[in-house]
Structures are given as structure tokens and as C-alpha cells.
């Protein structure tokens, strides 16, 4: 009985997930399939799922016309700095906003939170003027400066730190541990899923960032991967759809790798929660 119902449950879950994942993956599959088509087939009716004639030229074009190596290097540098900085800065302040108690804590947190409510499009030029006045145009520090801290990240970690049982914190205090020790030895190890989530999002956002790097850099050697798409878009002369899809496919590979790596910590999270008892 138990076994049977578990089997039925398993089949149900699998079939639900399978159907949903097909639905979710359709645009994605379409993108990859288009990256192997020639222009005539891209626009054909009815649409073809599997290219009638496999074309690899689009990928060749992507590698030939676009300084992809340089773009990847820049994006990796920028994303890594962003991830490391956000992990450090956000976890420290999230600790203050969740574990520590001080006057005005919640109001300060709310003020911080409210900065998320101003859209980036309107602060674009003021931020640019600031970076220019500092003299950081065309530099890595200019690109990463506004994303060294993320209010989203502070909020995320704060919520997670708040969920950590008080007993663990108190046990640490009795042992005479400092706040830094508490953060590093107890809170952070228990928050691996949240830290993995933050790293993933920080990486993703800087990997996908486009407008800010464009505004703050002039030289093509300083540009990030998303600029690569621009080599294949041209409204006036006609877009190169195949090339656009090929380069889009190429530049998502690193993010998928980062996602698969961060998955490990979700599973690890299950194990560590065992100590709580």
C-alpha cells in the first residue's frame, strides 16, 4: 500500500514536471533550433522544429565577427567581483539587520529597502555623472561600483538569517564567541542555500547587464558579453536571426554552469538542517 501510493505519487510528480518543463522549454528549444537555420528557414511557414538543413555558419559568424574572448573575460571579471563583494557586504549588513539589536534598526532597514523602489532608468545618468567625476570611466571599477552592494541581497539574507533558530545563536554566545565568529562559524554555514541563491542572482544580473556598462565604457575592449548580440541586430538592413540566436545560445552556457554548480548547495542545505533538532 505504502509502496504503491508512493509509486503513484512519483509517477504523478514526474508527469507533471515533464509536461511543465516541455512548456517552459519551448522558447528555449526554438532559440537553439533557430541558431542552426539559414535565414530563409528562420522565417518559413509552417515553422520547423528541427532544421531541414543544419547550418553552422551562425556560430562561425558569432566567433568570427565578435571579440567574444575579450567579452567573456570582462564579464567573468566583473561578475566575480560582484559576487564576492555582494556576498561579503550583504551578509555583514544582513547580520546586523537580523541578529544584532540596535536603535533604529528597522527604520534604517526600511529606508534601505525603499531605494529599490526607484527605477534604474532614471538614476542612469546621475550615476554616470558620479562615476565620471570619480574618474572611473572605461574601467572595471566603474562598471562594478553600483553593484558592489545589493539591497535585494541584504533583504534576501536578512529574511534567511531571521529563520535561524535563536538557540543556536545563544549557544554560541555562551561559548563567548564574537559577532564575527558567530556570523562566520554558525550563521553562514547554515545559510548555504541563501548564499548560493544570492551568488547565482548576482552573477546572473551582472552577466546580463547591458545598459550600464554601455553608458560607462566607450572602448569595445571594456564591454561585456551582452554587447555581442548587437552585432546581429540591425533593423534597417535586416536582422541576422540565426546569428543572434547562435550568440545568445553561446553566452548563456556560463550562466547555466553557474546554476548547476550552485545546485549542489541546495542539496547540502538539506543535510546541514539536520543539526538543528
Amino acid at each position: 500500500m505504502g509502496y504503491k501510493s508512493r509509486l503513484v505519487k512519483k509517477i504523478l510528480i514526474h508527469s507533471t514536471l515533464f509536461t511543465l518543463s516541455i512548456l517552459i522549454a519551448i522558447p528555449f528549444i526554438w532559440m537553439i533550433s533557430t541558431s542552426f537555420k539559414n535565414i530563409e528557414e528562420v522565417l518559413s511557414l509552417p515553422p520547423t522544429w528541427i532544421p531541414k538543413r543544419w547550418v553552422f555558419r551562425n556560430y562561425l559568424d558569432a566567433v568570427r565577427f565578435v571579440p567574444l574572448g575579450r567579452f567573456f573575460l570582462n564579464s567573468v571579471v566583473v561578475s566575480s567581483i560582484t559576487v564576492i563583494s555582494q556576498l561579503t557586504v550583504c551578509s555583514m549588513s544582513a547580520y546586523a539587520f537580523s541578529i544584532l539589536k540596535f536603535k533604529g534598526r528597522d527604520i534604517l532597514f526600511f529606508i534601505l529597502l525603499s531605494t529599490m523602489a526607484i527605477p534604474g532608468e532614471i538614476t542612469l545618468i546621475p550615476t554616470f555623472l558620479l562615476i565620471r567625476n570619480i574618474g572611473w570611466m572605461n574601467t572595471y571599477q566603474g562598471i562594478v561600483a553600483p553593484s558592489l552592494v545589493s539591497v535585494f541581497g541584504i533583504f534576501l539574507l536578512r529574511q534567511f538569517f531571521m529563520g535561524i533558530p535563536k538557540e543556536l545563536e545563544e549557544a554560541g554566545r555562551i561559548d563567548g564567541i564574537t559577532d564575527f565568529g558567530l556570523l562566520i562559524k554558525i550563521i553562514l554555514p547554515l545559510s548555504k542555500p541563501a548564499l548560493a541563491t544570492l551568488s547565482l542572482f548576482a552573477f546572473l544580473d551582472s552577466w546580463n547587464s547591458y545598459m550600464w556598462p554601455l553608458i560607462v565604457t566607450n572602448r569595445i575592449e571594456m564591454r561585456l558579453v551582452q554587447v555581442g548580440l548587437r552585432y546581429f541586430i540591425n533593423d534597417e538592413l535586416g536582422n541576422n536571426w540565426g546569428g543572434l540566436m547562435a550568440i545568445s545560445t553561446l553566452i548563456i552556457i556560463p550562466t547555466l554552469i553557474v546554476f548547476l554548480l550552485s545546485q549542489r548547495y541546495f542539496i547540502e542545505g538539506i543535510k546541514t538542517s539536520g543539526i538543528r533538532g
Binding site: 511543465l20 518543463s21 517552459i24 522549454a25 522558447p27 528555449f28 532559440m31 546572473l204 546580463n208 551582452q226 548580440l229 541586430i233 543572434l244 540566436m245 545568445s248 553566452i251 548563456i252 550562466t255 547555466l256 546554476f259 548547476l260 545546485q263
Partner: peptide
């Protein structure tokens, strides 16, 4: 990974 895949795509292409 499949459910996460839409997030990684570039918005212009997708």
C-alpha cells in the same frame, strides 16, 4: 535546470 533556463536567456533574443 529547465525551469531555471528562461532566467538566463538574454531578454533581447528571447
Amino acid at each position: 535546470a529547465i525551469f531555471f533556463s528562461p532566467v538566463v536567456t538574454s531578454i533581447v533574443a528571447i
